[in-house]
Amino acid sequence: MSEMKKVYERTKGIKPGAVSGFCPGCMHSTVHKLIGEAAENVGALDKLVRVEGVGCCGLGQLYVSGDWLIAAHGRAGAVATGVKRSSPDSLVYTYQGDGDLAAIGLAETLSAANRGENITVIFVNNGIYGMTGGQMAPTTLLGMKATTAPKGRVAEEHGYPMHVCEIINQLTAPKMIVRTTVDTPQNVMKTRKYIEKAFKMQLEGKGYALIEIVTTCPTNWGLGTLESIDFMREHMLKEFPVGEFRMPE
């Protein structure tokens, strides 16, 4: 019998035996895996501190290995500042959704970025509040229905979708700002590379990175898993085009 060659191994960045409890088609599980792989690839799993946002993001603690703490809703930027300034050798990342980062936590998000804190911000944007059941978020698309915008988002009443990368890109201190997605194997690999780059940059003390990952929420969008990917490509990525706003040299 010929010897089998191991070509793929589960990352140690995910707890042994952990099985995703996210909804079918949810991309949080993919993003968590990528964070684990990226931290392992840069050899810093034992330095990893996750500052966890509130909402579906708060479920990540069930799966990720490495230290973690929960920030109050929106406060991850401030909590991460406290951790990183007091423990500069730790690899500190926040994991936040659109409601957390762009609504309740916008002040903390902007201020941490503006100070150029040496942290990595993972921003998962699916345009809706997931955990609480589909309320309107700052990134909800025009016309998109939400439980708190039952007729869909209307510009005159609700304003327009907020573009976080573009806002952060107005600030001088941030070193890396990218928007990506995880809808194809290529994009999954690209996103991992971005996270790896941000982690490396942080370990070298080079400063703030924001990685926005546009994802789906089949449950609260009311779409099937494949339909929701089509919707994301056709609508979300049109409003939030992927791209490198700022990259480290």
Binding site: A78, G82, V83, K84, S86, S111
Partner: peptide, 16 residues
């Protein structure tokens, strides 16, 4: 940037 941020920085720092 606010009292809210300051106390949450305290939380993160003290947990180290």
């Amino acid at each position: 940037e606010s009292e809210v941020a300051s106390v949450n920085m305290l939380y993160g720092a003290a947990l180290t």
